[in-house]
Amino acid sequence: MQEVAKYLIKVNAEFKDGQIVPEISPEEVMRLVNEPNIVIIKTGIPEAVLRNVIETTRAWAAKTPLAEGPDTFDNNQHKQRLHIAKIQQAPQLFHDHTFDAILDLEQPAQQNLLQVFDPMRRFWNSLTGNNEPYGVRKGEPYFHPQVTHYPLGGSFFGRHWHPLNPQKVGTILALNQYGQDYHSGGTGYVINDHIVETEGYQDMGDMILFRYDLPHWVSPSSFADRFSWDDPAGRWVAILPFYNPWGTPADYKEPQGWKEQIVQAKEVTA
């Protein structure tokens, strides 16, 4: 375990029998996340497995029409997102592939994706004390596996936030290599009014963990490159949100609940 920058901690892990096993206990990992810090887990997932997720996603998208209508949260779809979120007013420009019905995918696509998403699911369960399976459950929280492509030439995701629960801890797994497959763009956070940028700190196979109510964003890829939806170059990540799509959305006001909790705790002990 090593603090590589303020509020940015790297933790080594072993990829064993399809599971991510960190060098410290899941309880200790969550303690670091909740302090809060940005924790980067060196998962050890093989490069071939990670790149296969990108290739599988691209092959699936090539034969699947782009989704145009509102999200239904009960299927497998991909969408070129270019809009401003209504509640948070967060601008977006990226290619989103969402596998809410991942268990309905044909083989070998399902198996290829689950080689990454199942270790992520098991790890998230170990961190949060849950035992959640995949599957759509209307009216309840469930997993929304996503593979997101940030093309070169200006893709980004504006500053936004989420309710802390039921997700508790966000997960962002790097599927390709900074400095090789892309040279700009990374996830940023605000902790105690301090800006934490992860660009250049996250290597292929590293999984960023963050307390889910921290304001965060994805910095733009360089405009020096030509933008193209069809060019696979750029940043690729796998994320595993867990939420109820029909539940209460994030507030317009930025959540800083952890700050309030710290203040309240100090008042109680004073």
Rank of each mutant, 00 (worst) to 15 (best):
F123V: 09
L113S: 00
E55A: 12
I24F: 02
N37W: 08
E106M: 06
V218Q: 04
A48D: 05
F99T: 01
R137P: 07
P232F: 01
A174H: 12
W217H: 08
G139R: 01
D213H: 08
G139Y: 01
A109C: 03
K266M: 13
D74Q: 09
E28Q: 15
K16V: 15
T148I: 12
V218F: 08
V169W: 05
L8Y: 08
T198C: 09
V49E: 00
P36G: 04
D231N: 14
W60F: 12
G200T: 07
G135M: 03
H149I: 02
N37E: 10
S126M: 05
Q146M: 09
L93T: 07
T43L: 02
P255D: 08
R226M: 10
Q261H: 13
H97G: 05
I191S: 06
K16G: 01
M30L: 10
E267C: 08
L93H: 14
R121G: 08
K79L: 13
V190E: 15
G234N: 10
Q80H: 14
Q261L: 13
R58M: 09
Y134D: 00
N130M: 12
T64F: 12
I262V: 14
K138M: 12
K259T: 11
Q92W: 09
D193V: 06
Q167G: 15
L240S: 04
N75E: 12
T128W: 00
L175W: 00
I38S: 04
T72R: 15
F15W: 09
T148S: 06
Y182F: 15
F99C: 02
G135A: 02
R121S: 06
V21N: 13
V196T: 01
D104L: 11
L214E: 03
V4M: 03
N52A: 03
H144T: 06
T43P: 00
E260F: 11
Q202V: 15
Q264K: 14
F123L: 07
A90Y: 07
P220L: 02
R137K: 14
H216M: 05
Q177E: 14
R58Y: 09
E47S: 08
S126E: 08
R121M: 08
T269W: 10
V196W: 00
R235V: 01
T248Q: 14
E197R: 13
K253F: 09
V136L: 02
P241C: 04
Q115H: 10
S184C: 02
H149L: 11
D71W: 10
W217R: 06
V33D: 03
V268D: 08
N176S: 04
Q77V: 10
R121D: 03
Y182Q: 06
F15S: 03
G179P: 02
G179V: 03
K86Y: 11
Q202G: 01
F242T: 01
Q167K: 12
R159D: 07
N76I: 05
F73R: 12
N112T: 02
I208R: 06
G135C: 03
Y7D: 04
Y212M: 14
K6E: 15
P36M: 05
S184F: 00
K63A: 11
M120G: 01
P151Y: 10
